[in-house]
Design a protein around this nucleic acid. Structure first.
Lengths: 275, 275
DNA sequence: TTATGTGAAACGATTCACAGCT
DNA sequence: AGCTGTGAATCGTTTCACATAA
């Protein structure tokens, strides 16, 4: 393996304590249950790599090839695929179309998932205008904002509704996925309304820990956290370089520069208040 | 624990095979090294929770309180904090300001990290315009796009440069973090230039697996993957509900609705081509 | 031969539970 | 009496290595 960054950076870890409800699922009809969370995230990555291959009219692919395309190691890929069934041919590989179909089935992509975007600021605009996003199974069917000047204005072809109408509109349009792109202050309130409107999945861009009933799935995308993780790695590398040269004697380390002005930073948080 | 979604959803998993370079880090001056990746991601979350507390003039906090605020369990929080040192007082808790300082130090937030955004489409605009993002330790100091009509136009106060100048401008402005918000096609090329310009950290919004030298850190944010993971959970829940009612006898399940029209979806991938 | 599929080993992260300090 | 800090147990994920099938 040739050690380079990009990997699935998920591993997931959604809370989900106490997963069993009422009686105890009877092990019958337990189709897609036993797939590890970490594997689910990667299946989506494999699916994209497979789509690229399909576009190039590749019909068959080995676990090694697909693993390279997806940026994972091939043993992991095979194990992941084994969770959804045995669709490969020993000595040959996998048929691209079969694998695409099976992964789509597993991920529930054979059905449309209506999306509502709440908070039509810069990010909300980006999401609403984004054509490729709704075009493949995730139609954006409602937009909401607080701002009366925005209500009624069509963004990406869909008129913006007022957030007071979230419950009604979401229920009416059978929205499954709610995307929260509001400032922190409004996020929990918006979330509650989405849930009241029957939304069971939430993608949250606001840097708050949302409180939701247990049947609702939340995923969070937090720019500040991503940047800070990167920052940590810069810091660590610098320390390593420093420690290294302390031992080696003189200057070793990454090719680029090394230091940079320290430049005091105030409290260094509270980011992503308004995307 | 009261089982609700929101958690750190990271656990990370960046590749990083063969982490040791040259000789073998001599265990001397090994300050921030041994912190598990998963813990680093959460430290950023704790930091935000602490900032909120600090704003409310809270001076002291127990692991239980902070854990609730950050949406994790308190044992995990204490273990995470133990990686950065012992800054709590038994029988009392942690002093907010001390913890903020120590986490900032650990994450390398006591230094500025210049950011360059490449691809000034909808998302790029959102990132460039976003005030809170650069205002706390991550100043956006360069913007790039391919489009000649955009070059020279100031976005969020910074004039857009042409992507041909990435290497030069990044080196000149000592950019540490590159954000790729381009379509898939250009992403690898842009990435190579950023790296040539001395950028060691990349936040990638394009759905490609970037190839980078091992001293470069990549993190990927992939909307399509997030949506598909949510989709999986909807599907699984539906199956569980179906399995449940098959056993129970009649209708059990989540309060909202249950089904929705299946509605065929074509190939269901290739999303996020142009955010 | 070649490449899948998978038990079993290794690794890493989380949770438990309690000793140790205030 | 209360809460931190941390070994030890547990659980989930990754990797190994090979039997199995084309």
């Amino acid at each position: 393996m040739t050690a380079h960054g990009a990997d699935v950076q998920d591993g997931d870890g959604q809370a989900r304590t106490e997963s069993k409800q009422s009686v105890e699922v009877p092990a019958a009809r337990e189709r897609a249950r036993a797939i590890p969370e970490a594997a689910v995230a990667r299946l989506a990555v494999y699916l994209r790599a497979l789509s690229v291959l399909a576009d190039q009219d590749v019909t068959t692919v080995s676990s090694d090839e697909l693993a390279v395309a997806a940026g994972v190691n091939s043993a992991k890929l095979r194990k992941d695929l084994s969770y959804i069934g045995s669709y490969g041919t020993r000595g040959v590989g996998y048929e691209v179309s079969v694998l695409v179909g099976q992964i789509e089935r597993t991920l529930g992509l054979t059905r449309k998932h209506s999306v509502a975007v709440v908070g039509i600021g810069n990010l909300g605009h980006a999401l609403a205008n984004y054509g490729g996003f709704p075009s493949r199974g995730f139609p954006v069917s409602a937009l909401f904002d607080l701002d009366p000047d925005l209500v009624g204005v069509p963004v990406g072809g869909i008129p913006v509704n007022h957030i007071d109408d979230i419950v009604e509109v979401c229920a009416d349009r059978e929205v499954t996925i709610g995307v929260i792109a509001t400032p922190v202050q409004g996020a929990q309130e918006v979330c509650d309304r989405l849930v009241a409107g029957g939304v069971t999945c939430i993608l949250n861009f606001a840097p708050v820990v949302l409180q939701v009933p247990e049947h609702v799935e939340v995923r969070k995308v937090d720019l500040a956290v991503e940047m800070q993780i990167l920052s940590f790695h810069v810091a660590r590398r610098q320390q390593e370089a420093a420690a290294q040269s302390e031992v080696d004697g003189a200057d070793t380390g990454p090719p680029g520069s090394g230091e940079q002005e320290p430049g005091e930073v105030e409290s260094a948080n509270r980011m992503v208040e308004r995307l």
